[in-house]
């Protein structure tokens, strides 16, 4: 009687936990599993495929483990056979060298193809033109420069839906990692160097991005919003921002270089031309250690 009651209580408990967690998970955003861009979408599919292939090995392991422990445990009703000296079998060992190897070959082929297909430096084919954004990670904020639109922003980017976006990324601070999980995977931002990343949103919306690499005390505040909008909305946003009274001059940039925490969104018009390259070059030779344009 008590045994049955115990089991009942336990299953009730499990059901309640499942309901609560199901409810929680349905109400919260899970960016990696809810991709809103072409790159993130392919990365998500890859994740599912590889998981399924691995389950081919993992599920039998769990069943085998459970079965063996249950069947060969040494208690009063021990029923399993006991062969203390049976210590090898070419066939069986061949199976578990062979089958995982075959699976890994399959996974390896997928990996090889996917790594080329999803190389972050690879342009995205589209009939729409590509938007270019230069990214500088700073202590502790993200500076975004739109070289063609002649605007710049802090901790905020906007771009049209279904337009490829090409990021050039560097750092004027310790190493950071530029990550917009709902649209694409991450890439490091490093001083004196430039990395690149392509992504394209296929749904409108506001997405959260952040730095994924520890960079000092303000690291947790290095969060930015990425907003995907209609082409027209984007155009009007660019126009509005171009009218911003704040301009990103060299002296303004030098103010930005000073460490600051949890920096609110800012919009600049007319960033000085060549700023991005100057930020990189300041680390390259002694003559240009101060930013020069």
């Amino acid at each position: 009687m008590t045994k049955i009651r115990k089991k009942l209580v336990l299953s009730l408990f499990i059901v309640i936990v499942l309901i609560i967690s199901g409810d929680y998970l349905s109400r919260v955003s899970i960016p990696v599993l809810e991709p809103k861009g072409v790159i993130a979408d392919q990365e998500f599919r890859l994740l599912i495929i590889i998981t399924l292939i691995m389950l081919i090995v993992v599920v039998p392991v769990f069943f085998l483990l459970a079965f063996i422990v249950w069947r060969y445990r040494d208690d009063n009703n021990h029923r399993g056979k006991y062969t203390p000296d049976w210590d090898h079998s070419r066939l069986i060992e061949g199976i578990w060298w062979g089958i995982p190897t075959l699976l890994i070959i399959v996974v390896a082929i997928i990996t090889w193809k996917a790594t080329y297909a999803l190389n972050p430096y690879k342009p995205i084919a589209s009939q729409n033109p590509t938007i270019t954004i230069q990214v500088v990670s700073m202590d502790w904020k993200w500076l975004f420069i739109y070289p063609k639109q002649h605007i710049a922003t802090i901790n905020y980017i906007e771009f049209p839906v279904n337009y490829p976006v090409h990021f050039y990324i560097t750092s004027d601070a310790p190493m950071n990692s530029f990550w917009l999980p709902q649209l694409s995977g991450q890439i490091y931002a490093m001083a004196g160097m430039q990395t690149q990343l392509y992504l394209m949103a296929n749904v409108k919306g506001t997405f959260i991005g952040r730095s994924a690499n520890i960079s000092g005390i303000g690291f947790a505040g290095m969060q930015f919003s990425a907003v995907a909008v209609n082409a027209n909305t984007f155009k009007s946003w660019v126009r509005r921002t171009s009218d911003s009274p704040e301009t990103l001059s060299l002296s303004e940039y030098k103010k930005l270089q000073k460490p600051s925490l949890y920096v609110p969104v800012r919009f600049f018009s007319r960033p000085v031309v060549g700023l991005f390259n100057a930020v990189i070059n300041q680390y390259m030779t002694p003559e240009s250690q101060a930013i020069k344009l």
């Binding site: 990996t111 990692s177 991450q186 994924a212």
Partner: peptide, 15 residues
């Protein structure tokens, strides 16, 4: 193994 696939790692690295 998931994270050994570079494109998947782009999404899971440092998380």
């Amino acid at each position: 193994v998931l994270m050994a696939v570079p494109p998947i790692d782009f999404q899971l690295h440092n998380s």
